[in-house]
């Protein structure tokens, strides 16, 4: 095993140990304070308004294949989708999920079905609620546009792997008068999202979504583990820079 592989394994193991430790200690703590992120405060309010006014909600999961390195943001999107499906199970108009990858589309159907089953509202589930809207970046965007224009969704959540085509979808959402909340792992998409979205999520904020929508103690524990390791990395980078400056390395 090479040096970098050992370091990688050690890092993942440390992450795992921290997550388990925070899950155990987190059970004893009550109401851990989370930093205020406007986008997540907005979600709760907008969901309530949408259900009351009988408007539709739309979650777009991006086009990161589940069998690739870009799958993580899509998985975060699926957690949020499941929580929102539960919260809106009483709505007259069922939630719609669009994706640009067929695997992700199947998982979105599965997430919707299991969420409705858990709250005893399986009759709300439609196979067409989890949709594959296109397989190329622009066909995906073009396929998602009618959900925002024709089906008049009042809250559009974009959580997943996107490219610059996210601008077209966000633009459609904003023109339709809906609230837009968006986050992605890709840098070009983040630049676009910052400029275009009503509520942008920058950097790792998207990965904190589960903790903010109360998807379970593991989400809070992973958020705390991320915080600890981020500070460790910051310390390591600064120490490395200082040692380099002093000519030690």
């Amino acid at each position: 095993m090479g040096g970098s592989t050992t370091l990688g394994l050690a890092f993942v193991l440390l992450f795992f140990v921290l997550m388990v430790a925070f899950m155990v200690t987190g059970r004893r703590e009550s109401g851990r304070h989370l930093r205020e992120i406007r986008a997540f405060q907005c979600i709760g309010r907008s969901i309530g308004l949408a259900v009351e006014s009988g408007k539709r909600l739309h979650v777009s999961l991006g086009r990161g294949s589940v069998a690739s390195s870009t799958s993580a943001p899509g998985l975060v999107g699926l957690s949020v989708l499941e929580r929102i499906a539960r919260a809106t199970s009483m709505s007259d108009r069922p939630l719609i999920a669009t994706s640009g990858d067929s695997g992700l589309a199947i998982l979105s159907q599965d997430a919707l079905k299991s969420a409705y089953r858990e709250v005893g509202a399986l009759d709300q589930y439609l196979a067409t609620s989890g949709r594959l809207s296109g397989l190329t970046p622009f066909s995906y965007a073009a396929g998602a546009l009618p959900v925002m224009y024709d089906e008049e969704s009042s809250l559009n959540i974009f959580l997943g792997n996107f490219g610059a085509e996210a601008a077209l979808m966000i633009d459609a959402s904003e023109r339709g008068g809906g609230i837009t909340l968006a986050g992605s792992d890709s840098l070009p998409a983040q630049a676009v999202i910052y400029a275009a979205a009503h509520e942008p999520l920058i950097g790792e904020e998207m990965f904190a979504a589960g903790a903010y929508v109360q998807a379970g103690p593991a989400h809070l524990a992973s958020l705390r583990a991320q915080d600890v390791l981020r500070w460790a990395l910051v310390g390591g980078i600064l120490a490395g820079a200082a040692l380099k400056l002093l000519g030690v390395i």
């Binding site: 975060v76 990965f207 981020r230």
Partner: peptide
């Protein structure tokens, strides 16, 4: 930050939490 978030997501799936 994105890499840390991606590792956390993967570990949650591996732990069966997600």
């Amino acid at each position: 930050g994105v890499a840390l978030g991606a590792i956390a997501t993967a570990l949650r799936v591996l732990m069966g939490a997600d």
